[in-house]
Design a protein around this nucleic acid. Structure first.
Lengths: 152, 152
DNA sequence: CTTGAAAAGAACTGCCT
DNA sequence: AGGCAGTTCTTTTCAAG
């Protein structure tokens, strides 16, 4: 774990929301010179605070209008079973995120599809046939809001 | 919805995973010249395919070792109730994502906390006291894997 | 830490095939 | 639509105070 002062936290917060902000622009907003801000960003990068820079896509514009969250409870879950499941689920292109969780479910999947009938196809032919699948629960996303998080 | 050819899809896929790639570097990888690649990126941007550039954070390194997914069923859910709930939930700093969903739950929250006892505090004092909260289900994240998605 | 400047690289523009 | 050559801009990096 890394210790950050208030300025560092402001930088991290800003870059988490908009990674295109330059060191100069950020510095101006925080009352720092361009090199000073740049060095801080560099230090944070070397400390491994940033895991990657991603571009968020507008999936609707790309023809994927349906996002569904699946909670999956495995029927049998030895070590082999988990690995089999994970390997099989990784082969489904419509699966965006695989989360291994502890609680009522064993896995949570974020699945995108073109429409509901496309999702039905994925669910019946790909999800329900996964090795070891027990109970499956689905929640269809209506809207999603991202918040700054605890650093905000 | 927008029509993309194979090259466009390769560009979108690449930028979704690494937004720092320059038009020149991307073009080389795809057998395109720098201006050709740049013009495609520009066209995609103007079409609104990209929604924003975010920097993924290593939350563990920042001292937030616990991520929990909450499914929340409201007890009462008229229009006012939904708005009250959303406003109240937006005031909790530990909440990273708020998803309005259709299915067994009404909302799904992604919550981060420093550790489990910190999470307990958030759950008892912030979540359980939200207006209209009925049933709450929690799944603690063990690991998370992002996949390229249907464009990959 | 700052200012100032140089170097590198990326973004953008016309023109041509 | 793609490529080439060139210009302009930003970002990065290095001085020196």
């Amino acid at each position: 774990m890394i210790a950050l002062d208030e300025t560092d936290r402001a930088i991290v917060r800003a870059l988490a929301e908009d990674s295109t902000a330059s060191a100069g622009a950020l510095g101006r907003r925080l009352g720092l010179s361009q090199p000073a801000c740049w060095r801080r960003i560099q230090r944070l990068r070397e400390a491994g605070v940033f895991r990657g820079a991603r571009l968020d896509l507008d999936l609707e514009k790309l023809g994927f209008g349906v996002t569904v969250f699946l909670g999956i409870k495995l029927a049998t879950k030895g070590r082999v079973s988990l690995e089999d499941f994970e390997r099989a689920v990784s082969a489904i292109p419509e699966v965006q995120i695989v989360e291994h969780v502890l609680g009522p479910f064993d896995y949570r999947l974020r699945v995108v599809a073109r429409d509901l009938s496309d999702f039905e196809r994925v669910l019946r032919r790909r999800i329900m046939t996964l090795p070891g699948v027990g109970n499956v629960e689905a929640n269809v996303m209506l809207s999603e809001e991202r918040r700054p998080g605890p650093l905000g």
